[in-house]
């Protein structure tokens, strides 16, 4: 377990030292969400109807934006080679790195989402489901994203490529994430979509680190 803790702490420290990276992601999230009223008009009814979806889609794109940095710098400076031959299983390393990515990008998003929600006229009943869904869904995004980030190491146009690979895989999270918000608004059971999100998280937790490890191993060969 110590290997996990060491890598997690290291990535966290690196991210805090370059906190502008995380802030850029938050800034992107805020600006992208605020663009929608300009696109569809300021009518509160329309905005309230799409608020959950807008916040989810922009959160998803923000998470995507920062994926590349999970492995790119470690790949370039050779740290990744060290990590693959160190005693820590590579899947555990992948898990630690995904966890650090989640902590440094998604937690800020979850914090700022309730501040953006009023500008989109999200009804009060939607707040709690939105936060719960984001908390349960964004770890899955980081885990799946880790696979993509590992796959494009050394590729041309890695940043754009990773979105192409990963976005279709994000659709289930998006569907159940927005469904939770909508359920909150319409008085349906919020529990069902949240449970599915939890299920997706568990599935990603068990499978994604292995896939990432395979991808990393062939990247450093």
């Amino acid at each position: 377990m110590s290997g996990f803790a060491v890598i997690f702490a290291r990535d966290l420290k690196l991210a805090l030292r370059q906190s502008s990276d995380s802030l850029t992601v938050v800034g992107f999230f805020a600006i992208a969400a605020v663009l929608f009223p300009f696109g569809v008009g300021p009518e509160p009814g329309v905005l309230a109807r799409i608020a959950g979806g807008v916040l989810w889609v922009t959160a998803l794109l923000s998470a995507l934006l920062s994926l590349e940095r999970i492995y790119a710098s470690d790949y370039e400076d050779g740290t990744l080679d060290q990590l693959t031959i160190s005693g820590t299983p590579l899947a555990l390393t992948a898990l630690a790195k995904a966890a650090a990515h989640w902590a440094t990008t998604s937690i800020p998003l979850i914090v700022i989402a309730p501040m953006l929600a009023p500008t989109l006229h999200l009804p009060v009943e939607g707040y709690l489901p939105l936060l719960a869904a984001l908390a349960l869904g964004t770890p899955t995004l980081s885990l799946i994203g880790g696979i993509g980030a590992a796959l494009v190491l050394g590729a041309r146009r890695g940043g754009v490529l990773v979105s192409l690979l990963i976005l279709p895989l994000y659709v289930p999270v998006l569907i159940f994430g927005t469904a939770a918000v909508e359920a909150g608004l319409t008085g349906l059971s919020v529990q069902a979509p949240l449970l599915v999100l939890a299920g997706l998280f568990v599935l990603a937790l068990t499978l994604a680190p292995w896939a990432t490890a395979v991808a990393l191993r062939q990247a450093v060969q």
Partner: peptide
């Protein structure tokens, strides 16, 4: 390198396809 990366992606995709179909049908 391209062959291997694409192979991993194909497998990840094939695991995801049933999940995608399930969620799309639910949606």
């Amino acid at each position: 390198r391209g062959e291997k990366a694409a192979a991993v992606l194909a497998l990840v995709g094939s695991v995801n396809i049933p999940i995608i179909i399930f969620s799309v049908e639910w949606w």
